[in-house]
Write a protein that binds this DNA or RNA. Structure first.
Lengths: 114, 114
DNA sequence: CCAGAATGATACGGAACCGAAACGATACCC
DNA sequence: GGGTATCGTTTCGGTTCCGTATCATTCTGG
């Protein structure tokens, strides 16, 4: 069933969720990093660097660097593809799942207050 | 009336809107910049650097620099307060209003598809 | 007046990210 | 096998953003 939002609701929701991200102490993910993370968790694997770059319309180094950063935070994992060792398979982590669970809680909670 | 979203809806909405921002060619605003912009447009004036810093829980230079950047894009405007010339009043612009209108269109449209 | 407080801007060194180009490793194909 | 294509990474120079400290300007209170 489709969600229907007014203009004011849409902007207020966006504002409150962004404000929550700014105010908490964790380091913010950039929009690109956030989009990569959500793609990995919402779409079916396998996820390769090349596929992610194509989906986001960005260059491959952007993906590599974002995976480096998010890997340091243990939000994603990299593994070589044994069937084609040129490929890198991007994998989910427990910590990444928890991160997105907290994000969805924030969104849902702010949506109720909008 | 409160919005009610499932976990999957919340994350899918967040994903699709972020993806749209990544894919379009305009330079992305950072989360902090976006939050400042939305605060200026959603909350009642006057908006000073100090107030914005307090609301977002960041230092004043963060606000000054974000206003510099968004001022270059003509998304916001600065004016000295004539009653207390130490203050800077942050003001809306036509271009900023258009920017947020496009943003809300994206959010509302993606919400329908979630 | 003048000392001190308040406000926003600036200086500084460091970190993160960018686009473009080049690189090493691996797979494919004739 | 040897040349070529593919894949992810690295390098390069440059830009932006950061936090902290400091600054100039303006107001306030005695």
């Amino acid at each position: 069933m489709p969600l229907s939002l007014s203009t004011a609701q849409a902007l207020k929701l966006w504002h409150s969720v962004n404000l929550a991200m700014v105010r908490d102490d964790d380091p913010d993910l950039s929009i690109r990093q956030m989009t990569i993370l959500l793609t990995i968790y919402l779409e079916a694997p396998p996820h390769t660097v090349r596929d992610l770059a194509k989906k986001l319309g960005v260059s491959k180094p952007v993906i590599t660097r974002a995976l480096d950063t998010m890997g340091k935070f243990d939000l994603v994992n990299r593994r070589r593809d044994d069937n084609d060792r040129r490929n890198v398979l991007v994998q989910r982590t427990v910590n990444g799942a928890l991160y997105l669970e907290r994000l969805s809680d924030t969104i849902r909670n702010d949506a109720k207050a909008v």
